[in-house]
């Protein structure tokens, strides 16, 4: 039986008098793809920012692996195994693809100055492992041929895939993707679709997704949450959502 990986209860975020997120509940189980959808400005990214530690939620609890993470700093949360991408690509664009992958593993290489200076066997072993992991994930996202290119010179779709690979080398348990298909062409979207499913099925991680591409969302999600104006509107599987009159109203307006 799968258990709860992420359990969000009554998440609320207020900016002054504005309630951006109002009592959102959300759960992600192990090996699940969960999507959050809603019209523009519904507060989806705000939810992400609360979960990943960019904002400290005004109220509510965020349990990750049974541990309260609301109020933790962003890097502490990412060390717990919850990592995210952003709406816009945030690669180190002047560095090569492989360097991007290695920086993300800096923490695992923390062996001290002297070990690095004298290249002790344990240091070399860790470096080799980091390199192997980087190469493994570059293969998974089909970027191995571009390993020595500057990441800023990759195509947009490749940059998106590199971001996911860079998250994966940190060995997360929950990957949060903020509009990963934005700006991709249909072909690239299809590849992304396959990649996300592969992450779940082969690498056994869970994915929390914000996406506007309904084809992608409906096709791959195990569970979908709909938010409108910061408030939860509906949740269920793809068919439930497609046929929910409230959701249709929120997207298309009253007829």
């Amino acid at each position: 039986m799968s258990q709860l990986l992420l359990d969000v209860n009554g998440l609320t975020m207020q900016f002054g008098g504005l309630v951006a997120v109002n009592k959102v509940n959300l759960t992600v189980k192990n090996r699940q793809i969960v999507s959050v959808i809603g019209p523009n400005g519904a507060g989806k990214t705000t939810v992400f920012n609360c979960l990943s530690g960019f904002y400290i939620p005004t109220a509510g609890s965020v349990m990750f692996k049974g541990k309260e993470i609301a109020g933790m700093k962003d890097f502490q949360i990412s060390r717990q195994g919850l990592v995210r991408t952003f709406q816009h690509v945030r690669l180190f664009s002047n560095m090569t693809v492989i360097e991007n992958m290695l920086v993300a593993q800096h923490r695992h290489l923390n062996t001290g100055l002297l070990a690095g200076l004298f290249k002790t066997p344990s240091y070399r072993r860790l470096e080799q492992e980091a390199m192997d992991r980087a190469i493994f994930w570059l293969k998974e996202v089909d970027l191995l041929d571009s390993a020595n290119r500057e990441s800023g010179n990759l195509s947009y779709g490749q940059q998106r895939r590199l971001e996911i690979a860079r998250c994966m080398v940190t060995q997360p348990e929950l990957l949060m993707l903020d509009e990963p298909a934005a700006g991709l062409n249909p072909n690239e979207t299809k590849e992304l679709d396959e990649l996300i499913i592969k992450l779940r099925d082969e690498h056994e991680i869970s994915i929390l997704l914000i996406e506007h591409d309904m084809g992608l969302v409906m096709g791959i999600s195990d569970h979908i949450y709909v938010i409108a104006q910061g408030t939860p509107l509906a949740d269920g599987n793809a068919d439930d959502i497609k046929n929910n009159p409230d959701v249709i109203k929120a997207y298309l307006g009253e007829s």
Binding site: S78, M95, T170
Partner: peptide, 10 residues
């Protein structure tokens, strides 16, 4: 290049 992202990557 991006100190916030570097921090986030651990």
């Amino acid at each position: 290049e991006d100190i916030g992202m570097t921090n986030l990557l651990g």
